[in-house]
Design a protein around this nucleic acid. Structure first.
Lengths: 204, 204, 204, 204
DNA sequence: AATGAATGAGCCTTCATTCAT
DNA sequence: CATGAATGAAGGCTCATTCAT
C-alpha cells in the first residue's frame, strides 16, 4: 500500500514537473532532461513511468479531456438548463485555469490549435467535445432560446471561441484569477454576452 | 528590371513554399530542406533570401501583421461606423483564409497561441492589435452601442475569440470558403452575434 | 568507486584522442566525428563529457596552463636561483614535449600564436605566464646577473621565443626527444645561450 | 597600359583587403565574402584574380617569402659580415611589421607555426629559409665568432625563435613600431643578445 | 525502482565555388 | 571585367531513447 502510494506520488511529481516545463518551453522545446531535472529525478525514471515523450504528452491530454468528459457525461447533467450546461463548460475552463494553470495553459497553447501531430485519437477528442457542446446549443435552439438562423455549428464555434480566447488572453498576459468571486464574474460575462448575442430575437 | 522581377518571384516562391510546408508540418517539424524541395530550389537559396529558419518565420508573421495594421491604420478608417470597423477585421481574417489559406492557417495554429518563442517584437504586434481593436470597442461603448458593464478588454477578448476560433475550427476540419457570398454570410453571422451579445440593453 | 574510475578513464581517453586528432589536423579541420572515432566511442559521448568543440579546446588549454602555473607558483620556487627558475620553465616545455608530445605540439601550433579566438581567458593566461617569467628576469636584473640596458619585457620575449621556437622546430620536423639525457643537453644549451646573451657585461 | 594599371590596382586592393581580413579573423574564419566586402567588390571578382581561397593564401605567402629570399640571395650579400647578415634578417621582420603589419602578423600567426595545410611547397620555403640562415650561423662558427659546442641547427632555432617571438609578442599586444629609431633599437637588442649568447667564449 | 552513461539519427547552418547575365 | 544568384557538401550540435549496473 505504502509502496503503491509512494509510486503514485513520484509519478504525479513527474507529471506536474512536465506540466511546468511544457508550459514554459512548449512541447517541442521541452526536453526530457528538463522535465527530469524539474522533478528532481533522473531521466531514466521518466521513461519508467511514461514510455516516451509522446506518451507523456498524451497523458497530459487525457487528464484534460478526462475531467471535461466526466463533467459533461455526468448523469445529473440532463436535468440542467441550457444556460447552466454552458455555464459548467465555462466553469471548467476557468476553474482549471485557476487551480491548475499549467494544465489549462498547455491545453490552450499546445493542444487546442495545434494541427501538428494531430493523431486520430486527439482529433476524436476534439470532435467529441465539439459535438457534445453543439448538442447543448441545439437543445437551446429547439427550446427557442437561441436563434435558429445561424447553424448550430457556427454558434458552437463562437461560444467556444470566446471562451478559449478569453483564457488564452489571460495566459498571454499571465493574468491570474484571484479568487472564486472574480472567476464567477468573468464566467457570468462570457455567458451573458453569448446568450444575448445568440438569443432568438423573435422570442424577445 | 527583368532581373529584379525574377529575383522577387523566386523569393516569393520560396515564401509560398514555406507557407505550405509549415502549414502541413508545423514550424518545428518543417525542415529547411522540405521548404527548398517544395520551392524547387536548392538548399542554400533559402538562406540566401531569408537568413535563417527563425527569420523566415518572422517574415511570415510580418506579412500577416503588416497587412492587418495597414488596414486598421487606413485614414479612411475613421469615417466608418463601429460595426463597419469590426466588420473589416472579420473581413480580413476570412478574406485571408479565403485567398491565402496557408497564411491564415499558420497564424491560427503557429502564431496566435504560441507563447513559446514569444519574442518582444511578436508580443508587441499582438498587444498593438489588441489595443487597436479595444479602441474600436471603446468607441462603441462611448456611443452607447455596446454595453458598459463589461470592461472593454473583456469584450475585446470575446470578439477576437469568436473570430479566431471560427477560423480555427474551419482550419481544423479543413473546410474551405467556397465563394464571396459564403464568406459574407459567415462574416455577418459573427458580427451580429457579437453585436447582439454585447449590445447595451438599456439602449434597446 | 569502480564506476567513477571508469568514467574518468573514458573521459581521459576522449581527451587523448582529441589531442591526437587536433595535432594531426589542426583545430579547425578536426571533426568531432574524427575525435569520437579515434576514441572508439560514439559521437554523442564527446558532447556528454565536453560540452562543445570549443570547450574541448579550452580543456586542452587548461591542461597545459594548469600544470605550468602549478609549477611556477610552487612555494619551493622562491628558494631557487634565477637560472634554476628559468631552467624549470625550459624543463616544462621540453618535458611535456617528451612525455605528451601532442599536448606540446598543440600548444605550439594551435594556441601559442593564434590571435584568432583569443578569448579574454586565453589572453589572461598568456599575460599571466609572461608576467611571471618577466618577474624572474627582473629578479636576474636586480641581482646584476642580467643586463639592465634592455627592458625586462624584451628579454622575456627573447627567452620565451628561443624556447618556443626550439620546440616548434622540433615539432615541424617531427623530431622526437630520445631520452632524458638528450633533453637535458638541449635544455642546457638554450639556457646557456640566453644567460650568456643577456649577461650583464659589466659584471663579467 | 592604363587598363593594365587599373587591373593591377584592383588586384592589389583585393590583396590588401585579404590581408586585413585574414589578420583579423584568421585564415579559416576569413570568408571570401568578407574579403570581397572589405575590398568593396563582388566576390566573383576575387575568384577572377585569385583562383580560390587556397591560392589567395598562397599568394600571400609568396609575397612574404619572395621578398625575404630576394634579400638573402642578393649578390651584394656575400660581402657582408655575419652580424650584418643576421641584422638584415631581423631588419626584414621588423621592417615588414612596421610598413605592412598585416603581412607580418599573418606570417607569425597563420603561416609560421601552422603544421596544418603544410603543403610541400610551404614546407620547402621554410626549410630553404632555415637552411640559408643556418649557413650564416655556420659561417659565424667557422670564423670563430660563434660557439661551436652547440650545433648550428640549434643556434638557428634560437636566433629565429627570439626574432619570431619578439614580433609575435608585439602582435599579441598590438604594439606598433613608432619610427625607424625604435625599430633600430629593438633590432640592435635582439642581435646583441644573440651574439653575446652564442659567442665563442674562448674567443673573448 | 533508480541512475545516468552511451548511442546516433536528424537538422540547421556555413561558405567555397560556379555560372548565367 | 563585373556581379551576385544559385548550389550543395560538410560539420557542429541536439536530444529522445536504450540499457547495464
Amino acid at each position: 500500500m505504502e509502496q503503491e502510494e509512494l509510486k503514485k506520488q513520484k509519478e504525479e511529481a513527474i507529471f506536474q514537473a512536465a506540466l511546468r516545463v511544457i508550459k514554459e518551453k512548449g512541447f517541442h522545446k521541452a526536453r526530457m532532461a528538463d522535465i527530469a531535472a524539474e522533478a528532481g529525478t533522473s531521466y531514466g525514471l521518466v521513461y519508467h513511468y511514461f514510455g516516451s515523450k509522446e506518451e507523456l504528452f498524451e497523458a497530459i491530454q487525457r487528464r484534460w479531456w478526462g475531467k471535461l468528459f466526466e463533467l459533461m457525461k455526468d448523469p445529473s447533467e440532463s436535468s440542467l438548463s441550457v444556460p447552466e450546461k454552458l455555464g459548467r463548460i465555462i466553469e471548467y475552463f476557468l476553474g482549471t485555469y485557476h487551480h491548475n494553470p499549467e494544465l489549462a495553459t498547455i491545453f490552450i497553447t499546445q493542444i487546442s490549435r495545434s494541427t501538428t501531430n494531430l493523431t486520430p485519437e486527439r482529433l476524436a477528442h476534439f470532435k467529441g467535445f465539439m459535438e457534445m457542446t453543439q448538442n447543448v446549443i441545439k437543445e437551446g435552439q429547439d427550446q427557442g432560446l437561441l436563434r435558429n438562423d445561424i447553424p448550430s455549428r457556427y454558434l458552437t464555434y463562437i461560444f467556444l471561441g470566446s471562451l478559449e480566447t478569453f483564457v488564452s488572453a489571460m495566459v498571454l498576459v499571465d493574468q491570474k484569477i484571484k479568487d472564486t468571486a472574480q472567476k464567477n464574474r468573468i464566467a457570468k460575462g462570457i455567458l451573458e454576452v453569448f446568450l444575448n448575442g445568440a438569443r432568438n430575437q423573435t422570442n424577445k
